[in-house]
Design a protein around this nucleic acid. Sequence first.
DNA 1: AACTGACCAATTGTATACAAGATGCCCAGG
DNA 2: CCTGGGCATCTTGTATACAATTGGTCAGTT
Lengths: 250, 250
Amino acid sequence: MPSPQGKRSTPESASIESGRLGVWAGLASDPIAEAVQEAICEGRLPAGTRLGEEELCRVFGVSRTLVRQALQRLGFAGLVTLRPNRSAFVASPTLDDTASAYAARRLIEADIIAEATRHCTANDIRTLRQHLKAQADAQARGHRSEALRLLGEFHLIIAEIGGNAILGDFVRQLVPRTTLSLALFERRDLPSCALDEHRLLIDLMAKGDPKAAAQAMRRHLSSDFGRLAVRPEGEPVVNLAAALRPGAAK
Amino acid sequence: MPSPQGKRSTPESASIESGRLGVWAGLASDPIAEAVQEAICEGRLPAGTRLGEEELCRVFGVSRTLVRQALQRLGFAGLVTLRPNRSAFVASPTLDDTASAYAARRLIEADIIAEATRHCTANDIRTLRQHLKAQADAQARGHRSEALRLLGEFHLIIAEIGGNAILGDFVRQLVPRTTLSLALFERRDLPSCALDEHRLLIDLMAKGDPKAAAQAMRRHLSSDFGRLAVRPEGEPVVNLAAALRPGAAK
DNA sequence: AACTGACCAATTGTATACAAGATGCCCAGG
DNA sequence: CCTGGGCATCTTGTATACAATTGGTCAGTT
């Protein structure tokens, strides 16, 4: 969801303080859900990994109460599969699931960017360009996980500019899901072309062409999806929850 | 939002066993969340009503653990506002929030019905017509709450036929939200015209015209939203959780 | 009389303890 | 050697107990 609950649109449109919007902000205000989400999106927790409550308790140093809460949220967000009376597992979206997620993103984000284009300010454009630079920087310096995060965050900023808080929440739900699919379907490479495509999106927004922006967004997401490849299958499901540590990037 | 977690699409497209899909099925498998959602959607729990944990415990005869779980889910679904260290309250969507919700529904459901039209079977059409009859029946017999439920459920069936499970989940989130707005913005009347509009939707699907169906869906939702009226305000927030009882319809 | 301070009641946040269900192993039987 | 039932263990589901934070109120002061 969805972001937890309220999280209405900000009065000042999309003025991200310092990049700290957080792609993985859907579960904001829940540190452990956020940590798990990050680990999932960065591929440190492969699809199908068992997420035992007791184990997570030890990792995060809290009681099962909080762990269960976090798992529930992650389940709601579609990143974790909760099986009653059974453990929780990192979701293993099929290719069909992934296609659905991308289809949803195409539909929603095309609408969002068109709307955003209609009423974005010069300041918004500046914010986007600035963020794009951050993406390029992270990628150039080889910070894969940060680049991945920023690439997703970019879409959230546009959603924020779009102004529809509900659609924004949906995007917040969808981005991590597609990122999980990316990790699942063996996309170790960073889509460098995404940078160019993001630049194009900004340009079309600045130009004030909603239709073209929407079309470009659809193409952007389609090509992103097109780069996925079916995996040979057989995830070893190697569990090492110690791979959670926030500083376990690389 | 979404529906809890998995709830993947059913193999046999949209074969609702006996109408028991449940509009308010987003929180399926959580009886108390479901009960509260139903009460909210039927207007028995006005917007802004305080939902104290202790009180709900007494009503449902369970411990705070389950009540908290349910509230969390409802918060995630946007029906309840959770204020940290404070109580939970029935959400009070503004007119803007409502507009956003309807805009999201227009966008998503137009796409869904177009897709559903492209690959619906004769059986699907039959199911829809049958369901429409149930709607008419409930309305004719003055069962307001049931009619309301069925009217929303209709959209879920189409979403199921559409085939995109994720978009379907979004609709499942959105329908109760808009229903809450209906209750909030003084729509005691039953939109009888909705029946005709629903019939039109089926006809266009049967005719196999995706574009027309999508357009009709947009118009349907727009007119629904247009019938809303601003309320004089000042909900007394009369709390009587005893108004929860499942059988407290009418 | 108005304002500021701290105390008190109520309610939520978190942890722990207990109950129920599931998985896997082991042993008996075919 | 393979199969099936039953028990043991582990994991999750639920309830209860304790800690922490909030908001209101009442006293005391200016």
